[in-house]
């Protein structure tokens, strides 16, 4: 893989909350078909990084682009974001799966999937429904179309949330600790779905605490702590043979 045409390119990202510097000069790229796992201790800046990439937070400094669609640029004086229309266009490139699913509780499973495509993208209803039914089937949720989220288990809800994100055909799918709110039994089903997506060459960026999963599924792993990328490289290399003390300590579970 080359850096020629990355789907996501983040350069020199900086972000502070008040006096606290949460991201200190973070750069990363994601190539088409690549699965990137971001690991590290809580408070290390992983979630903030993901929220900046998905435009839920704005960067203080640095640049971000999806393929050839710029989100913000930095000429050295801080991040300058594009127009509202630019950001709307940029949002079409990615989907996001939340730790707490954030399904719409008042909508049925089907409506959760088709409402955005119909109202936002103006997709014809029949087409949206057919696509939703197929995706639910793939997620192992066939026949649950008319249920509401509260009637589903956490694992099922998360799979609905993944299907909802896939409805819009994102180029890259971000996951913010997708299994942290689930017990081990339910985690399996969600991880299997993500694994299947990886096999279909879905481009994904996953913040996770599941080390074995990260090693098996990710191509590339970034270990973050203290707002910086401490170590990165091929998944097996970083997780099985970390070079930095900090990474070793974390993977041993010294600071769990």
């Amino acid at each position: 893989m080359t850096d020629a045409n990355p789907l996501v390119s983040l350069r020199h990202a900086r972000k502070s909350f008040g006096q606290t510097e949460v991201l200190k000069d973070i750069s990363l790229t994601v190539q088409p078909g690549e699965v990137l796992a971001i690991i590290g201790p809580s408070g290390g800046g992983k979630s903030t990084l993901l929220r900046c990439c998905t435009l839920l937070e704005t960067l203080d400094g640095g640049s971000l682009a999806f393929a050839d669609c710029p989100v913000c640029t930095d000429d050295g004086s801080g991040s300058v974001y594009g127009s509202k229309a630019d950001l709307v266009r940029a949002r079409r490139h990615f989907g996001l799966v939340f730790q707490n699913f954030n399904l719409f509780p008042h909508y049925t499973v089907l409506r959760n999937l088709i409402d955005a495509p119909i109202t936002v993208q103006k997709m014809p209803r029949e087409q949206a429904e057919a696509k939703a039914v197929a995706l639910l089937d793939k997620m192992g949720l066939a026949g649950r179309e008319s249920m509401v989220p509260c009637e589903l288990s956490g694992g099922q809800q998360q799979r609905v949330a993944i299907a909802r994100a896939l409805m819009l055909d994102p180029d890259v799918l971000f996951f913010d600790e997708p299994t942290s709110a689930l017990d081990p039994e339910l985690t399996k089903g969600v991880l299997k779905v993500i694994r299947d997506l990886a096999e279909e060459s879905m481009t994904m960026v996953i913040v996770t605490h599941e080390m074995r999963f990260a090693r098996d599924v990710a191509d590339h792993v970034i270990f973050m702590d203290g707002g910086v990328i401490v170590e990165e490289g091929p998944a097996a290399a970083v997780i099985d043979d970390p070079q930095h003390d900090r990474t070793r300590a974390f993977l041993r579970g010294d600071d769990a």
Binding site: V88, L96, F98, N102, F104, D115, T119, V120, A165
Partner: peptide, 21 residues
């Protein structure tokens, strides 16, 4: 919860659509 707004934002809903729907 703020997550409802965030989910809607990522899915591309406008602010008006997010509020009404």
């Amino acid at each position: 919860p703020r997550g409802q707004y965030e989910a809607a934002e990522v899915l591309g809903y406008s602010r008006g659509q997010t509020f009404m729907r």
